[in-house]
Design a binder for these strands. Sequence first.
DNA 1: CCGCATCCAACAGGATACTG
DNA 2: CAGTATCCTGTTGGATGCGG
Lengths: 123, 123
Amino acid sequence: MKPTHLHLTEDCRAVSAVLQRVGDKWTILVVQRLGGGPKRFNELRNEVGGISQKMLTTTLRSLERDGFVTRTVFPTIPPRVDYELTDLGRELQVPVNALGEWARANIGRINAAREKFDRSIAA
Amino acid sequence: MKPTHLHLTEDCRAVSAVLQRVGDKWTILVVQRLGGGPKRFNELRNEVGGISQKMLTTTLRSLERDGFVTRTVFPTIPPRVDYELTDLGRELQVPVNALGEWARANIGRINAAREKFDRSIAA
DNA sequence: CCGCATCCAACAGGATACTG
DNA sequence: CAGTATCCTGTTGGATGCGG
């Protein structure tokens, strides 16, 4: 048995899978907006901005399937649908926010590296 | 000025961008393998497993461009190229590993939610 | 050994039109 | 209002062959 602080390939695939899951174009933006409490479909649509109806539907369905959000339909006319983070969804925000914090703190270093790299390519 | 613990849309785009960056198919697997020290191209290729030559090249180039890895060419015959994490790359591992730890701990809950969702769809 | 170039299949995601 | 259905595009990524 290996020491438990070393998580090797078996686990690493799961990590990669989750990162790909939350790494798609809209997931994080939607989850972040839902952090402030339940929201309706078009409310999300407006707040996220730039997302198509199709992609918001798709993103929310995936989040629901993975147990990150709940979908509540109010059978009124016109219909009203609320989306809300589950416990699992709120717990996901913790490590995601940590990564976000790191991104905020280091985006300058990344951009500097890119510019340097691109300049050395042009030469 | 908003309180600093609330990072709103401006920042959230950057977060999303970084997540998409590390959320591609191979990046995390490659970075994880490089965590153990410098590695040669085919060494990485074998250890990661299942990655095509093209994608390993592409992934490594992107990592290099973003300042996460260095590329060192030894002008021998046959040629030898070492890839190694930079400080930035090693720092990136911290929040990524935290997310990985979360993924490991919660993959069961996610899978359970998926099965439940899929069963309720079939009905 | 390392990597580039090319071709190609699969998929993500946007635009638009229609429905309860 | 909250979707579904269809079409169309760009991108991702695998397979293969060549080159230094």
